[in-house]
Design a protein around this nucleic acid. Structure first.
Length: 156
DNA sequence: GCCAACGTTGGC
DNA sequence: GCCAACGTTGGC
């Protein structure tokens, strides 16, 4: 069993939850993910202490704005059980939860945004396997290699 | 606000 | 199991 730190990129729309919000609250349950692949990364791949690139999506400009750490193992997303929640899933039960999340803890804000444009300008170094700049990528949670994590932060 | 690129759903 | 219809994401 490897204890080696893994790295991830997690997207959030700043209107809904920004890096400043995370700084304010310190730790946040990453609720509302309703994509199976993203869920599987959180449920099966994440370990406490893993590094997270915090990305602002659907804003101008989109880009990496900070870092965070995985602060819990995966557990059921409470919002799936709440009929009044936007994220309610009528097919989920407490016996068989469908959606899982981890807690994410604030680490730091970057001194500046590493914009999507800038990341794209380094496509040659990052290569095709970097999911963020692959065509049509909509995943909100995905793994980043240690080398890519280091490279992206070196752009700061 | 538009729309491409998906993922999901449900009829068959 | 196929696939059309629909909903969502997220850059632009």
């Amino acid at each position: 069993m490897s204890k080696r730190r893994r790295y991830w990129l997690m997207k959030s729309e700043p209107d809904a939850f920004s890096i400043d919000d995370l700084e304010r609250v310190g730790t946040e349950p990453w609720n509302g993910v309703r994509n199976y692949q993203a869920r599987n990364f959180m449920r099966d791949g994440m370990q406490v202490g893993d590094g997270v690139l915090f990305y602002h999506s659907n804003t101008k400009p989109p880009g990496i704005v900070g870092t965070a750490t995985v602060a819990s193992h995966a557990y059921p997303d409470e919002t799936q059980f709440d009929p009044s929640s936007h994220y309610h899933d009528p097919k989920a039960t407490r016996e068989e939860p469908r959606w899982f999340l981890v807690d994410v803890a604030f680490e730091r804000k970057l001194s500046r945004i590493i914009t999507l444009d800038e990341i794209k300008s380094h496509a040659d170094e990052l290569g095709d396997e970097f999911a963020l700049i692959r065509r049509g990528n909509r995943l909100s949670v995905f793994p980043v290699s240690a080398a890519h994590y280091k490279f992206l932060l070196s752009l700061e």
